[in-house]
Structures are given as structure tokens and as C-alpha cells.
């Protein structure tokens, strides 16, 4: 008896899992920077990274295009992954995610207002101000999150919540299409490209804004580890072990909306990453402790988005696929797998 307890080591595989993720992350980051429509020799890449001015145009490509894109992937992937994990825990629903529950659509709507409405409405955000767009998108995501939270307290079934999320998304996209119909051709094209998911158009200035906001979101998420860990037991149990459920609810909604909204503002509504990453990470290391899950999912999200972006560059060609085409290609099968798995358990 004592032996069995003292040798208890549930988390034996853990350092390997996290180590693997970190290693894989670095590899993916380097590959992502190394591959693009212009072939750059490996040594030129390495010396460009150290700002070797003698590399000329290579250095410019790396620092002005590839690195911002790679960092955008990292931030967006980390934010969407943790946002998705928090939502799945929060709704006790393995199918929850920023895009599934309509948060991305809510953010899109607000961005559409900000970008497209300039021609239609007397007000608007004017030029593409990073902070302004982030604020608009976050408020849209928060509004949808609150609607879905209110709905989730009425419906108990997992699938009903998803239907509500889909309908909210349909509602907001109908508003977006009205705006599209009324807007100028130039604005429309900018918005369409944005809505296909795009990590390649952020500059360093926007990256700084993203980094600050995602950093705040991740810190709030880490502060919510205790409530997140016990959330699966339900409100009553959580309160009975001293968790302030009301306060935690506010922080979790805020952190997830902040991250999802900001990412959607700068990269467009990226599909499936938030939904798929928590499942893929849990597959790699079966784990329910958010102290470990949150960083692992952040790493996993960064890895997945770096990979998807690398694939979307179609290595060896000058063509680029829309990012959402690639993330959906990976994410949709994961969704089907999760549905089948959860049906089997019941």
C-alpha cells in the first residue's frame, strides 16, 4: 500500500512531452523562416538573423517579411490554442472553440464595421489603427462570448450550444455581407483577403500590440489555473472547495475574448486551430492540469500555425494558399474524430 503510493508518479512522462514540444516548436519556427517564395541559402538565413547587413536583400526579406510572419504565427497560434482550451474547459464541452462558438464572427463583424463602414457610415475607425482594430475585435468577441455564456446556462446539451454558436455566426456574417455589399471595391478586397486568414501582413508595430495583448491574456489564463482545474466538477463543487466562481468566470471570458479578438483583428478569423490544438496536445500528453496544459497548448498552437503557414507557402513554388484552407484541412478531421470519440464513450 505505502509502496504503491510512494512510487506514484502520474506525471512521469511529462518533462518528455514538454521538452518534445519545445524542440518541435524551435524546429518549426526555423523551417517557417527558412521557407518562402524566394530561395535563401541556409547560411544566408543564419547570418541574416544576426542582422548581417552584407546579406542585403536577404536580410530585408527575413526581417521585414519572414520573421514578422513567423512571430505572428507564434502569437496567434498560442493565443488561439489557449483560448480554445479555456473555452472547452469553461463550457465543459470538447467541441467548443473560438470559431465554433462564433467569437471569431463577432470579432469579424466589428472589424468589418471598422474597415468597411468608412464608406457607408459617417463615422468609422478611419485608417487601419492597430489598437483601434484590436479594441473593436475584442469587444465583438466579448459580446458574442457573453451571449453564448447566457445561452449555455439555459441549454444543457453540448450540441445545442454548438448550434447556437453556429446561428450567432450566421447572424453576424449576414450583417457582414450587407456591409460588403455596400462598401467600396478596394475596401472589399482588403476585407476578403483578411477574412481568408492571413499571418503575413503584420508589421513590427502591430506585432508589438499583439504581443502585449496576448501576453496579458496568457497571464490572466495562468492566474485562472485553479478555477480552470476544478471547473469540470461543476459550479457547486468548485465553490465548495473555495473557488470564487463568479470572479473566475469574468476573468476567463475576458482572457479568451481578448486573445481571440486581437488575433482575429490582425490575422482574420483563423479556423479550427483553437478547437483542434487542445485535443492534439492532450493526445500527446494525457493531462488535465491546466498549469501544464496552458503552456503546452500555447506551444502546440504555435507549432500548428507555423506548420500550416509553412504548408500554405507551398514550398518550392511562388503560389500561396489561403491559411484557412490549410487549418481547416487539418482541423476538420480532428473535429470529426472528437465527435466520434465522445459518442463512443457515451
Amino acid at each position: 500500500m505505502n509502496r504503491s503510493l510512494s512510487t506514484l508518479n502520474i506525471k512521469a512522462g511529462l518533462p518528455y512531452g514538454l521538452g518534445f514540444l519545445v524542440f518541435f516548436f524551435l524546429v518549426c519556427f526555423l523551417i517557417n523562416v527558412a521557407i518562402g517564395s524566394v530561395d535563401i541559402p541556409f547560411l544566408a538565413i543564419v547570418s541574416s538573423l544576426f542582422r548581417d547587413a552584407s546579406q542585403g536583400i536577404y536580410e530585408q526579406i527575413i526581417w521585414d517579411f519572414r520573421l514578422p510572419k513567423a512571430f505572428t504565427c507564434v502569437l496567434a497560434g498560442a493565443g488561439l490554442g489557449t483560448g480554445g482550451l479555456m473555452m472547452q474547459t469553461f463550457f465543459r464541452n470538447p467541441l467548443a472553440g473560438p470559431d465554433v462558438l462564433g467569437l471569431s464572427s463577432g470579432a469579424s463583424l466589428m472589424v468589418a464595421f471598422a474597415v468597411l463602414a468608412q464608406g457607408v457610415l459617417p463615422f468609422g475607425l478611419g485608417s487601419f489603427q492597430p489598437w483601434g482594430v484590436a479594441l473593436a475585435a475584442t469587444s465583438g468577441a466579448t459580446a458574442i462570448f457573453l451571449i453564448v455564456v447566457a445561452a449555455s446556462r439555459k441549454v444543457k446539451e453540448n450540441s445545442s450550444l454548438l448550434i447556437i454558436g453556429m446561428m450567432v455566426a450566421a447572424f453576424t456574417s449576414s450583417l457582414v455581407s450587407v456591409l460588403q455589399f455596400l462598401s467600396k471595391a478596394d475596401d472589399l478586397q482588403a476585407f476578403l483577403i483578411w477574412s481568408l486568414g492571413n499571418v503575413g501582413s503584420t508589421n513590427w508595430n502591430e506585432l508589438n500590440v499583439m504581443a502585449v495583448i496576448i501576453g496579458i491574456g496568457l497571464l490572466i489564463a495562468l492566474g485562472c489555473v485553479k478555477p480552470l482545474n476544478v471547473w469540470f466538477m461543476g459550479e457547486n463543487y468548485a465553490i465548495s472547495i473555495g473557488v470564487n466562481v463568479k470572479r473566475a468566470r469574468v476573468w476567463i471570458v475576458l482572457a479568451a475574448s481578448l486573445m481571440v479578438g486581437t488575433i482575429t483583428a490582425f490575422c482574420g478569423p483563423i479556423a479550427f486551430v483553437g478547437l483542434a490544438v487542445p485535443h492534439l496536445v492532450k493526445l500527446l500528453m494525457p493531462q488535465s492540469d491546466h498549469k501544464i496544459l496552458l503552456p503546452a497548448v500555447a506551444l502546440g498552437g504555435a507549432i500548428l500555425l507555423l506548420l500550416c503557414d509553412t504548408l500554405s507557402q507551398l514550398p518550392g513554388s511562388t503560389q500561396i494558399l489561403p491559411l484557412n484552407a490549410v487549418t481547416s484541412f487539418i482541423g476538420a478531421p480532428v473535429l470529426i474524430w472528437v465527435v466520434i470519440k465522445s459518442k463512443q464513450r457515451n
Partner: peptide, 23 residues
Amino acid sequence: LVLTDRIITSSMTVYELISFGRY
């Protein structure tokens, strides 16, 4: 408390569940 609320969890050992009592 021990309530009638159903508990749904994916990957968690019994030891982890019991250890929540220490939260």
C-alpha cells in the same frame, strides 16, 4: 460535499480527483 452532480472528465486519474480535496 458529495453531491449528485455528474462529473465529466477526460484524462484524469482517481488520485488527481481525490487531490482536489486539498485545493
